[in-house]
Amino acid sequence: MARNLFKHDPAIGYRFVPNLKGRVRHEGGGYLVRSNADGFRSDRPFVREASDTQKRVLFFGDSNTAGDGVSNGKRFVDVIEKHLDIAAYNYGLPSSGVDQQYLAWREAGHDVEHDLLVLCPMVDNIRRNLQSARLIHSSMSGDLVMLPKPYFELVDGTLTLRNSPVPKGHLPAPEEEAPEDTSPSGLRKVARKAMGMADKQFPGIRSWSQRARRLALPEAYNDPDSEGWLLMAAILRQWISEAKTPVILCPIPMFDHISGKFRAEPYRQRFAELAKETGVEFVDILDGLRKIDATGDAPLRFPTDEHPTVAGHVAIAAQMVPAIRKHLSLDTKPLSVASNS
């Protein structure tokens, strides 16, 4: 049984147990987790007043930003902090939707003086925004359970917060894990089941098929009027409107986007449109990651776990550094991937 990493938070759903010192076993060899007094995975305290000597940048995102799989100090936020000599505040919250990331900003980041706000939604977070509970492995028991979360609904075009305060406790896990994307038709369910059976018989056939079909997943990005995108866009629009500093919008692609298995154009288009509409900078790191993935020696992701390795974090950091440097008017060199991986 591992140490429990999270505590209930009525506004966000959960956050890290404050002042935690833990280590998580993992296929990459395990990783160290430290949290600060505010309950975020950071070695540094989050100070409200601005510093005279260091620029301060706030990062929000999910487990990719929080750094599941790698130790504190080795995540892309840490790499950027070190390279640019800035104070990087990491508010990443594993398994969260953009709804929770926005609520974390409202609860814990809004009043912290800073120079730049970097939003790093993982592309797949669009599905989580629609959920009122997340299927997780309880860090207390190891069991699969449903953890309630806050979520928004669009009511007459207005964001309306639900499940707030977030109820305590776990809900029983469903008999079968929820399907990966929303509401497949009956025929597609059958096809998916058949493909699953075929993949067991001939490992890799599902992946080959997806690559061949160049699916555009998650599907919600395909239609600007889809429920998922309307909600995602509304949350981000609200967030950006409340920001007091310049904002960078830097979606983190899925590895299936990097490998080319999933078509990325829909999500890139949606975020680009939103950035243009709201006047923030859209930092598209996909091409850079694809290039490093194709030429680099070290794998960017773990074999099974779909999170970035240390090399993956360095690669992500390298793609973000130019935009952050520009916003902060810093005179530093580009980040070399080779020297940090």
Binding site: R3, N4, F6, K7, H8, V17, N19, L20, K168, G169
Partner: peptide, 17 residues
């Protein structure tokens, strides 16, 4: 061996009411 912090204990008793 491992120690617990009061924050961890608080998280536990709060979660379980």
């Amino acid at each position: 061996g491992p120690a617990l912090t009061n924050e961890e204990v608080e998280a536990f008793v709060d979660f379980g009411n």
